[in-house]
Amino acid sequence: MNITTFHDVVEWTRALHEHLAQCLKHCASQHEEERAKWLLGYLSDHEAALETVVAGFEKQADPKALNTWLYDYQSYAPIKPHKTCTEPYAKMSFDEICQEIFDLHEQVIGFYRYLEGRTEIPETRALIGELLKLEEHEAMRLVHQTNRSRDL
């Protein structure tokens, strides 16, 4: 995807969560370990819900913010949505799946922090700030939920 505006950033994020949800769901049906199968299903549902929330940003965000051009994007290399399925989640352990998903979310958070630090227009700073808060909150929630499931 060619990212040239903040609308593209929102769409990229939505597509990333959509792709990851589909990949995790597919791998859940193929995993042999019951706990990992549950984790993949849970993560798939979580990513699908995130996709819906991020899609709401496209509808509710200030058009001025969405249509603002990104000039510094080329110097940052965010994750590509297709990278998320290069690891065979169906063959990974519970802990490996968790680590992969946590790392992915940390990369998204890092990308938003990068953009937030280079955004000069208040509307775009607010948009990226909201997306950053969402991703940070959801990453914390994932860590908390997966740690709780380890205890079971």
Results as ranks from 00 to 15, higher is better:
Leu16His: 09
Leu16Asp: 01
Leu16Gln: 03
His17Ala: 09
Glu18Phe: 06
His19Gln: 13
Leu20Lys: 05
Ala21Glu: 02
Gln22Asn: 12
Cys23Asp: 13
Cys27Leu: 01
Ala28Phe: 03
Ala28Met: 06
Ala28Gly: 08
Ser29Phe: 07
Lys37Ile: 00
Lys37Met: 07
Leu39Asn: 02
Gly41Arg: 05
Tyr42Val: 04
Ser44Asp: 02
Ser44Met: 01
Asp45Pro: 01
Ala48Ile: 01
Glu51Ala: 13
Val53Ile: 15
Val53Leu: 03
Glu58Ser: 15
Gln60Pro: 00
Ala61Arg: 08
Lys64Gly: 12
Ala65Asn: 05
Leu66Gly: 12
Thr68Glu: 13
Thr68Ile: 03
Thr68Ala: 15
Tyr71Arg: 12
Tyr73His: 13
Gln74Asp: 12
Ala77Asn: 14
Ala77Gln: 15
Ile79His: 08
Ile79Leu: 15
Pro81Arg: 03
Pro81Val: 00
His82Lys: 10
Thr86Lys: 13
Glu87Asn: 10
Tyr89Trp: 12
Phe94Ile: 01
Asp95Arg: 13
Glu96Arg: 12
Cys98Val: 13
Ile101Met: 06
Asp103Gly: 15
Ile109Tyr: 09
Phe111Ile: 00
Arg113Ser: 05
Arg113Phe: 00
Gly117Asp: 08
Arg118Ala: 03
Thr119Lys: 01
Glu123Trp: 03
Arg125Asp: 05
Arg125Leu: 06
Ala126Met: 07
Leu127Tyr: 06
